[in-house]
Design a protein around this nucleic acid. Structure first.
Length: 260
DNA sequence: AGTCGTCCTCGGCCGC
DNA sequence: TGCGGCCGAGGACGAC
């Protein structure tokens, strides 16, 4: 599924769409779910150009000389520009690009296109997305920002739930959260606000290294714990049987022996 | 404030 | 072997 790393690959591809005059934008009803009804995307953007492709967490934002055009990719969304896909396949997505799964399409004056491809239809098209609702971006997260993100009145929610909270930190998804907690030897069930100073520094270090390494490897599914991410999986570090349980509403695999 | 259910579809797996 | 059917996966968001 696309997490921050995949969206960064999309953003790099999206730069090939900059500076080209927009002819039309179409999006199906579900992809347009969060848009004001009655205003056609083409009416808003026709004649404009994308002048920058930015990313905040998992949100991709195109600046124009008018409103911003935003894309959220949900679970299986992918970006295709001029027929070229940003990445081959997603862990839970389809390996192939099919026309019937194109949910939105920008057509440029030069005949090229930028398409939102999404078999499972949780991706959305946005106009002037609310960037203020997102926390600091995970790829450039400082230790101070991490501490702020984990603060709470009491013990706070489960650590993993807070890591997944896009208003606290933008960009971390289910696989990355499990991988960095596994590397940092922290239980996903720990209260977010209960980490000691050394634990905060350790989590911050592993957060940065995890994102850096997995970006170079090719995505959020290339983590070291992935091989054991299935029922009956054993921790690659110590051979302990992984726990599998829902934390923060998401399926979580973690090692009860070395994560505490 | 924090947790849970829902959206949406498809791939994978079960059993016959 | 083939097929029908069910389950679970993910991110965002609204409801409680």
């Amino acid at each position: 599924m696309p997490e921050i790393l995949e969206i960064e690959y999309y953003r790099l591809l999206a730069e090939t769409a900059l500076g080209r005059e927009i002819l039309s934008i179409e999006a199906d009803q579900l992809a347009s779910k969060r848009l004001e009804t009655g205003i056609a995307l083409t009416d808003i953007f026709s004649g404009l150009r994308f002048v920058a492709a930015r990313r905040i967490g998992k949100l991709l934002v195109f600046d124009t000389e008018g409103p911003c055009f935003g894309l959220r990719f949900g679970m299986t969304g992918g970006l295709v520009v001029d027929g070229v896909a940003a990445i081959k396949g997603l862990t839970y997505g389809s390996e192939s690009i099919e026309e019937k799964w194109v949910r939105a399409r920008v057509t440029f004056q030069d005949g090229g296109t930028l398409a939102l491809h999404d078999p499972r239809r949780l991706a959305r098209v946005l106009v002037d997305p609310d960037e203020e609702a997102l926390g600091p971006d995970a790829l450039s997260l400082t230790l101070t920002q991490l501490k702020t993100a984990l603060k709470s009145r009491g013990e706070g929610p489960a650590l993993k739930a807070r890591l997944l909270d896009q208003s606290a930190i933008a960009g971390i998804g289910n696989l990355l959260a499990d991988e960095m907690l596994w590397r940092a030897a922290l239980s996903p069930l720990r209260g977010a606000a209960t980490l000691s100073e050394p634990e905060l520094r350790r989590l911050h270090r592993h957060l940065r290294v995890t994102l850096d390494e997995l970006f170079k490897r090719g995505g959020s599914h290339t983590g070291d714990h992935m091989e054991a991410r299935h029922p009956g999986g054993m921790c690659p570090k110590d051979g302990q049987a992984f726990f599998r349980q829902a934390v923060g509403g998401r399926t979580t695999y973690w090692c009860p022996k070395h994560q505490s």
